[in-house]
Write a protein that binds this DNA or RNA. Structure first.
Length: 466
RNA sequence: GGCGCGGUAGCAAAGUGGUUAUGCAGCGGAUUGCAAAUCCGUCUACGUCGGUUCGAUUCCGGCCCGCGCCUCCA
């Protein structure tokens, strides 16, 4: 029986996963900054870690899953100001929208979603500890900074050498910093900005400190897995390590996981290129019933450490493939039940997932299983297919409902909605009378409306969305 | 300049020192009133030049090409 290996960014290699406490796992994922809807790159990252959590649980571990919400930040303040909306109204609205997007993508609700604004106290205490240990200092401008030169090992995650980091070349360095790479822990209050009282004076926390303080509260000083997008490696996660290990004098995280980027075609997603799509923009273009799982499948069928290109064709391709799975489950009613891990295909699926979440192979196994289901028409095998898909958050919808899709069917002529069932019934009568001309006319009419008819043995006609 | 990643068939995407990845698309066949679905079969591969090896897509080196981070960023 294979066991899980995880690629650890700290060591840049796959390592056997050994939980801190046998049978349990703690995972912290850097969540959204709630000033706008999440984009599909965010969706990829969150989907990846949803997959990780699901697989850890499928492996029998009791997982505590924490994903934070950053609700105090410069971008939030700017957005609230430009929209002339109170900050809290903006963040509450965005948090609610985020929850909707997650639900469409079939993302698990984390066990805890700590918000920065509710952990100001712990953050201040954290900074106090750092100051006592000589790792933090107060600048002339009232800000409190972390002194990176006083933390041995700074750069170990992103493999950067302090002297090679030419900070300040591209951005002006704050004069109050002793070293250009020092980062802010506490920002002194400015007029019109939200602030909290503290021993450092009124102010608000820097970005990095929330994750150190909240992960410590939620998961302890040392925990198993910390995840996020590739770009967070530096400086965010490097700074988290400096803060947490500096304050606690213990290892912070055992396994660092970073998901690769999603690009727009062959271009990087960026606001200046104007090619940032929100998850809900993409979902709006997809079928109301199928779209969420289609997007999830598109995001997860490649390996999480490989870059992924977003194109409409690839999204459609993912939809075609996914429909293939559901077609098999529609044709052979799956037995409900847990995974039979003794089945050879189940073993191969597990081996693939245990090999650093190798979803391309896992899905290849599922395709083989799909073929077996169709050949053998075995409810037990169909049940295995569904159960295996379920371990990573797929194939749990009702197959017929999934294949019929969710949007109203429009004939494209005068905007009239087609009554599919009535037409199918009429066609059945025509077929019985051997009026194939009429039957084919109805087929064509429905085809034009995006409906494919499938005649089954016994005179039954199924239909699905094209 | 520093650090790092990748080039696999039409498209996507794994993996392996010698034996079919897999999917979508295409093509042929079975099946079907016609279709669809399904099944069977099938065509396109491992950037380039060398090295190691009985044998390399798979290990090593050079080269070419593409890309990322070093600044807020999933």
């Amino acid at each position: 029986m294979s066991s899980l290996s995880i690629h650890n960014t700290l060591t840049r290699r796959k390592e056997p996963f050994v939980p801190l406490v046998p049978g349990k796992a703690g995972i912290y994922v850097c969540g959204p900054t709630v000033y706008d809807y999440i984009h599909i790159g965010n969706a990829r990252t969150f989907s990846v870690f949803d997959l990780v959590v699901r697989w850890l649980r499928a492996s029998g571990l009791a997982v505590r899953y924490v994903r934070n919400i950053t609700d105090v930040d410069d971008k939030i303040m700017e957005r609230a100001r430009s929209r002339n909306e109170p900050i809290e109204a903006l963040t509450e609205r965005t948090v609610a929208a985020f929850a909707e997007d997650c639900a469409r993508l079939n993302l698990l609700v984390p066990d805890s979603e700590p918000r920065a604004t509710r952990y100001i106290g712990p953050m201040v205490e954290f900074i106090e500890t750092l100051e006592k240990k000589g790792l933090a200092y107060r600048g002339a401008n009232g800000d409190v900074y972390y002194s990176v030169r006083d933390f041995p090992g700074y750069g170990k995650l992103s493999r950067r050498n302090l002297d090679e980091l030419r900070s300040g070349e591209r951005v002006a360095v704050e004069a109050a910093k002793r070293d250009p790479l020092d980062f802010v822990l506490w920002k002194a209050a400015k007029p019109g900005e939200p602030s909290w009282p503290s021993v450092f004076g009124a102010g608000r926390p820097g970005w990095h400190i929330e994750c150190s303080a909240m992960s410590c509260r939620e998961l302890g000083e040392t925990f198993d897995i910390h995840g996020g997008g590739w770009d967070l490696q530096f400086p965010h996660h490097e700074n988290e390590i400096a803060q947490s290990e500096g304050a606690n004098a213990r290892p912070f995280v055992n396994y660092w996981m970073h998901s690769a980027f999603l690009n727009m075609g062959d271009e990087k997603m960026s606001k200046s290129l104007g090619n940032v799509f929100t998850a809900r923009e993409v979902l709006a273009k997809l079928d109301a019933v199928q779209g969420g799982e289609q997007l999830r499948f598109f995001l997860l069928r490649g390996h999480y450490r490989s870059e992924l290109s977003y194109t409409w064709d690839l999204l459609e391709d993912a939809g075609n493939t996914l429909r293939g799975f559901y077609t098999a489950l529609r044709e052979v009613n799956p037995e409900e039940g847990p995974v039979d891990w003794s089945h050879p295909l189940a073993k191969r699926f597990r081996d693939a997932m245990n090999d650093d979440f190798d979803t391309p192979i896992a899905f290849a196994v599922l395709h083989e299983l799909r073929g077996e289901v169709n050949r053998a028409r075995s409810p037990a095998l169909a049940g295995l297919l569904k159960a295996l898909g379920g371990t990573i958050g797929f194939l749990q919808a009702d197959p017929e409902a999934f294949l019929k899709g969710g949007v109203s069917v429009d004939a494209g002529k005068g905007g009239a909605t087609v009554d599919v069932d009535a037409l199918v019934a009429e066609r059945a009568a025509a077929k019985k009378a051997r009026d194939f001309a009429r039957a084919d006319e109805i087929r064509r009419q429905l085809d034009a409306a995006g409906i494919v008819l499938e005649d089954k043995p016994g005179g039954v006609t199924e239909w699905r969305k094209k």
